[in-house]
Design a protein around this nucleic acid. Structure first.
Lengths: 156, 156
DNA sequence: TCAATTCGGTTGCAAATTGCAACACATTCC
DNA sequence: GGAATGTGTTGCAATTTGCAACCGAATTGA
């Protein structure tokens, strides 16, 4: 009764079970900002320790973070982004770009820059196989081999 | 005691308060798939009606969805993506691309295509101002005017 | 025309999740 | 050795979610 579409394993659904949980996206932000320690996560986020513990465990299980005792202080633990976790950075950037444009009036928020050029990462473009830019209105969702309604972007 | 960084309004934080809530991302998926009715959302997602009601209200308040009585059946309500909501599509696509690559073993999930070319939307690239591709390892987070630790992408 | 059905909610209550504070265990510092 | 630190865990209160029953307005249909 709870699943009406068991046919396809949906990527949005699977990622939703990760970042759709409270705190997880913010923990990832901290990880991308270079934070690795439990104590730092706790302090930066103001999150309850049991919840932080739970989220870190889940992120490790999901393979986004690695958990390793800090060699210099064996009380401490380093939570580091795995390559799988790092691969999520573009998502974070696109989300931040959207939020900077549509939610945060001031532009003082988090930004992402290319250390080689010093430039800020440019607004992400959707492209087709040929590399041509694809306009939002020309994007359709395909589920399995079936196109969903073209009415999605009809009205405001 | 809960906020240690009140200086900057963080875009990740603001978007986390939206899509970091259970169901919201899935509701948006359904909206992008062209669904507009309460009853359909409920049926497709298997979500409790009070929660669905709450989430739709929040999405309308946040300006991602518009709420309009259906002119043909005045019992029904159309929830439609606003332009602000539509602008979130690239985020959804990038998240889905990540999940398709890193979470969903089978490639049978949701996909996004360009109706002009018929091609699937290509993997999103990060670019600098000049349009050159930026490698993940060259991306740094900037908070306000301060670069955060360069150690982020150090080890696996 | 008037009863039954549908749509989009709301309400009350049980179950699950989150937050808080205290505790525990190993390591490190002094 | 004793105190402090880092990373948890545990128990309990508060909040959120899920479920089922109810409700009013609009529609259907006999």
């Amino acid at each position: 009764m709870s699943e009406s579409k068991p046919k396809f394993q949906c990527p949005i659904e699977s990622i939703s079970s990760l970042i759709g949980e409270s705190w997880t996206l913010l923990i990832l932000r901290e990880a991308f900002a270079g934070r690795t320690q439990f104590k730092i996560f706790e302090h930066e986020l103001g999150i309850a320790r049991n919840i932080l513990s739970d989220r870190l465990k889940k992120l490790v299980e999901a393979g986004l973070l690695s958990r390793q005792t800090n060699p210099e202080d064996r009380r401490a633990v380093d939570y580091r982004l795995t390559s799988k976790g790092k691969a999520l950075l573009p998502s974070l950037i696109v989300l931040a770009q959207w939020a900077n444009q549509h939610l945060c009036s001031s532009n003082a928020g988090v930004r992402f820059i290319d250390i080689e050029s010093g430039d800020e990462i440019a607004p992400v473009r959707l492209t087709s196989g040929s590399g041509a830019t694809v306009a939002l209105k020309n994007v359709r969702m395909r589920i399995g081999d079936q196109l969903v309604e073209p009415s999605v972007l009809r009205r405001a």
